[in-house]
Amino acid sequence: MPLISGALALAAPCAAREAITFDGAKLILTNGITSVEGSGGGGLATWATISGMGTNRAIGVSAHVTGVELPDFRLDTHGVAIGIRDRVELSYARQNFNTRQIGAALGLGKGFQFNQDIYAAKVRLVGDLVYGPGWLPQISVGVEHKRNLDGAVVRAVGARASAGTDFTVSATKLFLGASVLANATVRLTKANQFGLLGFGGDRKAARSVQFEGSLGYLVTPRLVIGGEWRTRPDNLGIAREDDAKDLFAAWAVSRHVTVTAAYVDVGSVATVANQRGGLLSLQLAY
């Protein structure tokens, strides 16, 4: 036994060297930013990217705060994500949606807030955003479990449930030859306004297939500009829901700090049409 424990003691430093650590070695900006649902991506769309600056032999972490200022509402989100070996992403985000004056008009009270927790996991199946064959994008599958914290209210407006789970498949590629970043995501969802108005409704209770597309142009190694389009279900009879679009500029201030500004158009929200405004997001990543 003393021999064996001696051998283990000798082996320990080697094992420690192989232990998974932070390396912060992703190329700048290739970690993407954080979507309003806390997953690594663009602003509105979930991408196949894995959050944090860690590469395939390391872990990475990121944290974000995002504010969306609309004419009649405000959405604030914040959250954290961990990327493991550039393979698995686990994230949590909190959404707070302030209805301001509309809350009073809807009988909820002025400044009524819908709150939601989003727990998400994403796994990269194949491919790489930057490397590998030019035709093979990074492809990931994800699951986003959303728990609306105002169950009684969202049921009162017609939602079938206060919690729901989205499933996503994303393909993202940086086409270096053209300096273009492209993403396509298919989402299975029954969420009304991302889930802030609950899940399912009188018009449709079940999940439907929705699409998220993003197109970006790399202006410099640290600056990408582009746009996104996200189709959404229209489950609630009393509150029409439109596609969401944005035009964004994401700037990597440093390896660890990315600031994103966007013009966002989410259409009609909770009976109020023409909700176009600004998004500002700050992400820290290691």
């Binding site: 070695a25 992703k26 190329l27 590469t55 032999r57 550039d86 053209a178 300096s179 202006v219």
Partner: peptide, 29 residues
């Protein structure tokens, strides 16, 4: 060599191209 090593080398190539005033689209090509 690892992916992290490769990324470090790419960063140096990018810096060298930038210092030589190679346009960013040409760098990416």
């Amino acid at each position: 060599t690892t992916r992290a090593d490769l990324n470090a080398l790419v960063e140096h190539l990018q810096q060298a191209m930038r210092e030589a005033h190679v346009s960013f689209p040409a760098q990416n090509r």
